[in-house]
Design a protein around this nucleic acid. Structure first.
Lengths: 176, 176
DNA sequence: CCTATCATGTAATCCGTTACATGATTAT
DNA sequence: ATAATCATGTAACGGATTACATGATAGG
């Protein structure tokens, strides 16, 4: 069985939770944390733990009465897999994969696109900065650093698209 | 039939090519252009044009002799679809989705990770800058702008990971 | 009570990846 | 010639998205 990024997100969230968690709880956790830069469909938070249970990386416990909710706990094997992944050499850089950039590349009007993109990215940037100001110091260091990376990139996007919106052509290298 | 990002990459490349192109030619074009920020598996460049042909957005022509290669041309309907997409409002921001960032978020050692990531991103940055210096002025404006966005983000990554590699904790907002 | 929303899950579909496989070219 | 690489494709598998569907809970 192959472990994907989604697998490690589930394992990571379960480890972070410290105990049991239902798929819905995972969804809530993801939305306010890792979901800021890597979203997962809610259906996957129901199916992926099942796969992980088959592999022995998590343990499933089903409520007997009422809703028969599923509760998952990470196992020792799961923690080991998570640790191994954390320390494994990272072979691949992520890609930008920005839909707006794709349109720009294929000839969309820079000014119109820029205006729309600035709005999107500025909103996200505000959200990040507010989160950082409110909760930044309380976050585990990895999470805070990830948030700071997100802020830096959103700033870059805002700056990039704003220049397009203003009709000025940015030119990498011109500033140094 | 639903059009995906891959669909528009194929349509965009075919439009850019100006005439016929084989899947292999698409692969070559993608590798040196859009592939810098959005890669596509080579198998998709064989299957996706087929889907587009079913939808009437491209035309397939198969060589009769020898290798019986497939050659594709974008149709008027295809151009219309591409135009509509270019001008359509962009609803979604792209995600960072960086594997290294994911590990950082879930507790990987910042220094070790930073060292590895700096190497990856510095290499890519060098490649981009070299490409920009060599061919930048000759590129269509959208492509050049996309490349400049890529350069800006790679610079940001290098700076971010370098600080981690050096054991210094970056702090968004501290510099302004 | 009623209805809107939250919570919880399943099923089908399909795109994307991986693996396999073979036909041409080039180099030695 | 032969090996190596380039070029060209197909098939299978599986993860991810989409759509559907129903059970609880809270608000009015």
């Amino acid at each position: 069985m192959r472990l994907t990024a989604t697998s490690y997100i589930v394992l990571g969230l379960l480890a972070r939770a410290g105990g049991q968690a239902t798929p819905y709880a995972l969804k809530q956790m993801a939305a306010t944390s890792v979901g800021n830069f890597w979203t997962v469909q809610h259906a996957q938070l129901y199916t992926e733990p099942e796969r992980l249970a088959d592999a022995g990386l998590v343990e499933e416990e089903r409520e007997t009465g009422g809703r028969r909710r599923r509760r998952y706990t990470i196992t020792a094997a799961g923690r080991a897999a998570l640790d191994a992944w954390r320390e494994a050499p990272v072979a691949d850089r992520g890609e930008l994969r920005d839909p707006g950039l794709l349109r720009l590349f294929f000839g969309a009007d820079p000014e119109a696109l820029g205006v729309a993109q600035v709005a999107l990215h500025q909103a996200k940037l505000d959200e990040y900065e507010s989160l950082h100001a409110r909760a930044g110091q309380g976050l585990p260091s990895g999470e805070r650093l990830a948030l700071e990376a997100g802020i830096a990139h959103e700033r870059e996007w805002v700056s990039f698209w704003r220049r397009l919106a203003d009709g000025v052509r940015p030119c990498a290298g011109s500033s140094d």
